[in-house]
Computed example of a mutant assay.
Amino acid sequence: MSKKLENSLLFMWVVSLIAMMGSLFFSEVQHFEPCKLCWFQRILMYPLVIILAVAYVQKNARIAVTSAIFSCLGVCIALYHYGIQKIPALQESAISCGRVPCTSDYINWFGFITIPFLSLVAFILIAGTSFYMLKALKEEK
């Protein structure tokens, strides 16, 4: 496996680890209760930490297919979640999320950085790197 692919695996693992640690910080240290959409994003991000760590140790770049699927699903959920927080027209038709409304934002740094935005960035970074790896693997053959 090339050094570029190995570094890409490491990058994706670091991004997923930071995302997981960040979400745990918000819920366990800051005591922000996650809404249902946050839980779905966690369900897609947390396994990536383990999957990508194992792939990095095994030098298995073919895991990019799996990480692309998980992260693309995560992008869709995070984008919708961010949209219902920031676009008034979407807020009116937003799904009911239980005890914690999905439209609430615990943080709002610089007027646009919310928890779903942070999740979206992490999923985009992982998805982009996954597609880069898939392209590199195809070119190596």
Rank of each mutant, 00 (worst) to 15 (best):
M1C: 09
S2Y: 10
L5C: 04
L10Q: 12
V14T: 14
I18E: 02
A19G: 08
M20W: 13
M20E: 10
M21F: 11
G22Q: 07
G22L: 06
F26L: 08
F26S: 07
F26T: 15
S27V: 15
V29M: 03
Q30F: 14
H31I: 15
F32W: 13
C35G: 10
K36C: 10
L37S: 06
C38H: 04
W39R: 08
F40N: 09
R42E: 12
M45F: 08
P47Y: 02
L48S: 01
I50C: 02
L52P: 03
L52S: 01
A53I: 15
A55Y: 02
V57L: 10
N60F: 07
V65T: 15
S67E: 06
I69N: 02
F70I: 12
G74R: 04
V75M: 04
Y82T: 15
I87P: 05
A89G: 09
Q91H: 07
Q91N: 06
S93W: 12
A94C: 07
R99N: 13
R99I: 15
R99P: 11
V100M: 02
V100R: 04
P101T: 12
D105G: 14
N108K: 13
F110C: 12
G111E: 02
I113Y: 03
L118W: 06
I126W: 00
G128Q: 04
T129C: 06
Y132P: 08
Y132F: 11
M133T: 13
K135Y: 13
K135N: 11
A136E: 14
E140R: 12
